[in-house]
């Protein structure tokens, strides 16, 4: 079934169908991306981009597979954006132009939390892509059946993959924090 046509020419029915799809997935998609990139504006932009990508598929995706497709694409966009930001920060740091652009509400706790979230992202970017996706998705509330679809693994292997990814995350995170002087 073709949900999506050209936005400028599509019939009223299709328009409604796409809007329903948007309604059904927007909030979850946005929150997932926010968890990944940590920046509300960027999460918003990436979520809209993801829906545009879906729109551009012009019905090439089976209806049943649209959800998994959306979250798979969103995860990918999120991780790529994160990677690009990290690279940019590195360039800027190398060029001596590093500056803090984030605004903070409660200086001490927000900085600590932001630092912690940044550390989490650094660790996740070092991990296998599948493991990073699995952790973001599971800790955003996706069920095992959904994870299996988005990650494209056998449903029965999700528990094992998740346990393995969590263990690996803890190992890397603690090692990084130990390196920064925090007790492991």
């Amino acid at each position: 079934m073709n949900y999506i046509g050209d936005m400028s020419q599509q019939s009223g029915a299709r328009h409604v169908e796409f809007e329903q799809l948007f309604d059904a997935h927007w909030m979850r998609l946005y929150r997932l991306l926010l968890r990944v990139v940590g920046d509300p504006d960027q999460a918003d932009e990436l979520a809209l981009d993801t829906f545009w990508a879906l729109h551009d598929q012009r019905g090439q995706i089976e209806t049943d597979a649209i959800g998994a497709w959306l979250y798979r694409v969103a995860m990918n966009k999120g991780l790529n954006a994160l990677r690009a930001r990290q690279r940019r920060a590195r360039y800027e740091a190398e060029a001596g132009h590093l500056h803090l652009t984030q605004t903070v509400r409660n200086p001490i706790t927000e900085v600590e939390r932001a630092d912690e979230r940044a550390a989490v992202r650094t660790v996740l970017l070092e991990m296998k892509g599948r493991d990073a996706r699995l952790l973001f998705l599971r800790h955003s509330g996706f069920s095992y059946a959904e994870l299996a679809e988005v990650i494209e693994v056998a449903p029965g292997s999700v528990g094992t993959l998740l346990a393995r990814a969590e263990k690996e995350f803890e190992r890397r995170y603690r090692r990084m924090m130990t390196g920064k002087g925090e007790e492991a």
Binding site: M7, E19, F22, D23, W26, M27, Y30, R31, L34, R35, G38, D39, P40, D44, A47, L48, F51, W52, R105, E110, R113, A114, E116, R117, V120, L135, F136, H139, S140, E166, F169, E170, Y173
Partner: peptide
């Protein structure tokens, strides 16, 4: 322990699907 590390950043409100859809179109 992992759950505690995957918190969302503080934000007063999330854009609603309606707001987002208006910007989308």
């Amino acid at each position: 322990w992992l759950d505690a590390h995957f918190t969302l950043p503080e934000q007063s409100a999330y854009p609603t699907p309606q707001q987002a859809y208006s910007r989308f179109v």
